[in-house]
Nucleic acid binder design. Structure first.
Lengths: 350, 350
DNA sequence: TTGTACGCGTTATCAT
DNA sequence: ATGATAACGCGTACAA
């Protein structure tokens, strides 16, 4: 039942054993329906007995599908700053899981394509090779290069700005849930002086969340600090820095700080606590993501749950089912719902 | 400077442009030294102008390396129990990062091969296919199947029992660091009644840690609870269950609980706190792993730092450099050092 | 429904 | 030092 020698069986051996031609074997493998059931049986049996697995290289060469999709993400440059790396990649990890799961179900393999900050453009040819489709993580490739790539190979953009007209985009809902956060802080907790701790200044997700937060707050008559000092890099350490600088000004702190993601919220809480402020008694803090530790923290973090793993699995589904199978470029945006999760850090009792 | 059409340049076009044969181009690409400098120049120029990138499918087919290694791990079956999955995979995530990083440096791609609990054995042929080497995560494959696989393809075992004679094994140091934990609790904190909360009963890592802990404690004259009730599954929820059952007995609790991993420690602290016990004032708790949240917890977790990502990167290095390049099976065990990290949960002031 | 034969882009083995 | 040319394993017209 298992190929017992060291050499892998080829389609020729299968054909010989089944008493058919390699063309027939190929047809069986690829699910053609113009095959007599009896013949199919023969072939399937031979495949089973020989432990035959199609050679992916040969498939790729001859123009067929390799059943491989590649996930491209930016490998963080800062190897020394261990904590940063670890934290910033949690997101990627979850997405990888999602993509991998779907790939497994669909009989695809997942090729991980981390790229360093510098060699992005030059590696396009490399990326396109050896796979049937591409999943590009947000901000991995310069916007202008996306159409180039998408033209050459089925491509799905993940958690991007959603503005690309050249490829399918899968992202999470940012606006409505952030409106809920702001509304909760202002109407339920009666806070009137708020702040929004943003992620990277050029992150579409962060921008959307900040805008939604600021707009809502202003509409409800609350003030929001969200200027130059309130940008960071999505990491805990970055948030600590922001908070400490804000504390150093000596000015009165806001009553609540909404953060663009959970890791920043964790850093913020840490810094505030170190400074002698109690969360949420003295100041409320909220996050965004709902990473696994959010519920285990003290106080448990009020945040917005994001289906990160699903983000990956949906991207893979779309890529495999539509772009690859149907062979036609599909332009659409898929927006996955998020969910506001009230815990303790906003001041609510659990 | 970039291939401008949709079709990639081939070695034939390069040869034509450089006025040489494809054989010469191939030699240049692969760094043969029997080439006249002038000729090499010509070829390099043509490659540059055409934006030529070797087709790796063709490379793989013609017998060369595909520059792909595959990481095989067990995809957890329990998709519904979300938290469990998330937690149990943190480890795999970090390892994936490490492997991926090294692969990138060496010009290799990483193929992710998650396997479901059921189809492990049957997928051997699949796993061996389409890659140059295999990294097997602990307990992915039944012990008896490892030699079979290792005979067919260069293989590295990760974090395993270290008993396999059939393949290189990379793992972390468990014994010495656990001895340090026990010694610290007993000699520095003067605890005499301890407990060890283990992981899976059949986990080599968990067993080594438990044995080291129990042995050391007994040598130093302390008592250790480590019987049937103290086994769990490496998860927080599992630890909660163990602690709650122990509390339900009504018997006096130990002064300190050492856990086989951080996630269990987190669960233990959670359960103890819920029961009105203070950590570390009433009872000390230690972990193992040093996951990123360990330092952010309250109390910060005293634990043993494990270089998880390095575990992956070292495995990849060994696989690529030795097994693949030298083409000869290398039998060796690599043990990566761990580091005892004292924080607060043991009762120390930070 | 099934078989034959060619091409995919490399590497490697011969020659030269 | 370099050039022809044969594999490598598969998909797929084209034939039958």
């Amino acid at each position: 039942m298992v190929g017992d020698s060291m050499t892998r069986a080829t389609i020729y051996e299968v054909a010989a054993r089944a008493g058919v031609s390699i063309a027939t074997v190929s047809r069986v493998i690829n699910g053609y329906d113009s095959i007599r059931p009896a013949t199919r049986e023969q072939v399937m049996l031979a495949i089973e007995q020989l432990g035959f697995v199609p050679n992916s290289s040969a498939r790729g060469l001859s123009g067929g599908s390799q059943n491989i999709i590649r996930l491209v993400f930016k490998r963080s440059q800062t190897e020394d700053s261990f904590e940063l790396v670890q934290e910033s990649l949690l997101f990627t990890d979850a997405i990888i899981r999602g993509v991998e799961r779907t790939c497994g179900k669909r009989g695809y393999s997942l090729l991980l394509g981390g790229v360093d900050d510098d060699n992005l453009d030059g590696k396009i040819d490399q990326m396109v090779a050896n796979c049937d489709g591409l999943i590009l993580l947000d901000r991995t490739l310069k916007e202008r290069l996306v159409p180039t790539v998408a033209k050459r190979i089925p491509t799905v953009l993940l958690a991007g700005s959603g503005r690309s007209r050249s490829a399918v985009t899968v992202m999470v809902e940012n606006h409505d849930s952030t409106v809920q956060v702001a509304t909760h802080l202002i109407e339920d907790h009666r806070f009137s002086r708020l702040a929004f701790l943003a992620g990277f200044a050029n992150s579409p997700d962060s921008m959307k969340r900040r805008d939604a937060f600021v707009d809502t707050a202003q509409q409800l008559g609350a003030s929001v600090e969200s200027g130059a000092g309130w940008y960071s890099d999505y990491t805990s350490l970055g948030a600590v820095r922001v908070i400490n600088e804000r504390l150093a000004t000596g000015a009165e702190m806001p009553e609540a700080i909404a953060c663009a993601n959970d890791q920043a919220a964790i850093g913020a809480i840490h810094a505030l606590t170190q400074a002698g402020l109690r969360v949420p008694e003295d100041i409320a803090v909220t996050g965004f993501d709902d990473i696994s530790m959010a519920r285990h923290m003290t106080p448990a973090l009020t945040t917005v749950h994001q289906p990160v793993e699903e983000l990956g699995s949906v991207a893979a589904e779309v890529l495999i089912d539509q772009a690859i199978s149907q062979r036609k470029p599909v332009m659409q945006n898929i927006v996955l719902p998020t969910r506001f999760v009230i815990r303790e850090s906003c001041g609510c009792k659990e």
